[in-house]
């Protein structure tokens, strides 16, 4: 295993930004084997499930109150088709919003590098917009745009926008000043400074943003469906609540969190491929 490099300490923003989204996990230390690294969380999850099962069974709790994990798993399998059909629109709107929000954030951050006054004008607005809670914004969006696909995409795009914008701006800004001067000393074009220096420097920060927004866009999609939807996992949550179908409620929750994990995993995988020089940081959250 490679030893931790200096880069890890060079990039505090990545570490702190990703810490918001990822579950706290010990970084792989020298001497800790790969197996142990994965074993600890797996054992922890298994233990929680076992305690849950034991509690439900020993206290004889009714499934409509709290279903046992075995019952939830059973429901998940029995209703696999229904749950999958509900997950598809959730995935679609999460992915569309994720793509739009992140593309906008990246484009805007690049524009901000070259337009300082635009940055001063727009950035505070963005911060204000970000401070509005999703549950307050969703009804407004539903009233003005309706309950359709567009509303949901707008909401997930908004959710995906800010973490990436903030991370990207930090990544594009935080270049070594000596390197900027090196580029200047040969009269390099501004586009060269951007694409050969700022952009690669920002990639680890971009992925920190993507890791946060991949999970957040799925969660956001579910919440928007929950507030005002007629399909999707969020709708399934609220529907099964009204029907007192508690096992199905739990099953749809598990399905949602599996989606979140999958989104997070996909981004982490892409990061390993695209930012190989930053392996130490990636390994810390994977």
């Amino acid at each position: 295993m490679k030893s931790l490099s200096a880069e890890m300490t060079d990039r505090p923003a990545v570490a702190s930004a990703s810490a918001q989204a990822s579950t706290p996990q010990p970084a792989p230390r020298r001497g800790t084997s790969r197996v142990a690294h994965w074993l600890v969380p797996i054992v922890a999850i298994a233990a929680i499930i076992a305690i849950w099962q034991a509690t439900v069974v020993s206290l004889g709790l009714k499934p409509y109150f709290i279903p046992s994990p075995a019952r939830v798993a059973e429901t998940l399998v029995d209703n696999g088709r229904t749950i999958w059909d509900a997950a598809v629109p959730t995935i679609e709107q999460a992915m569309t919003g994720f793509a739009i929000g992140n593309l906008l954030a990246v484009a805007l951050s690049i524009w901000f590098v070259h337009a300082r006054s635009a940055r001063r004008a727009v950035y505070p607005l963005a911060i204000v917009l970000q401070s509005i809670p999703l549950v307050a914004l969703a009804p407004i969006a539903i009233v003005t745009i309706g309950t359709g696909f567009a509303t949901k995409v707008v909401m997930t795009a908004i959710i995906s926008f800010f973490p990436t914008l903030v991370n990207m701006m930090r990544g594009l800004d935080s270049v070594d000043h000596s390197l900027v001067e090196l580029f200047q000393s040969v009269h390099a074009k501004r586009s060269a400074v951007l694409w050969k220096l700022r952009w690669p420097n920002a990639l680890p920060y971009l992925f920190a943003g993507l890791r946060i927004t991949a999970s957040a866009s799925v969660i956001g999609a579910v919440i928007v469906e929950w507030i005002g939807g007629d399909q999707g996992l969020g709708y399934m949550v609220i529907n099964s609540t009204y029907q007192f179908n508690t096992p199905l409620l739990w099953a749809s929750l598990v399905a949602s969190s599996l989606l979140v994990l999958a989104a997070f995993g996909l981004v982490s995988l892409a990061e390993r491929v695209m930012v190989p020089w930053n392996r130490s940081t990636a390994a810390g959250d994977a």
């Binding site: 070594d176 000393s185 040969v186 990639l203 930012v275």
Partner: peptide, 27 residues
């Protein structure tokens, strides 16, 4: 001009060879 700084200030995403080629690309 050739400029050398106190901290080597290499690009971490580039190999040694690619780092040495950098200014060649720029000019």
């Amino acid at each position: 001009f050739g400029f050398v700084f106190q901290d080597a200030a290499l690009l971490p995403w580039r190999s040694v060879q690619e780092n040495v080629e950098l200014l060649g690309e720029l000019v």
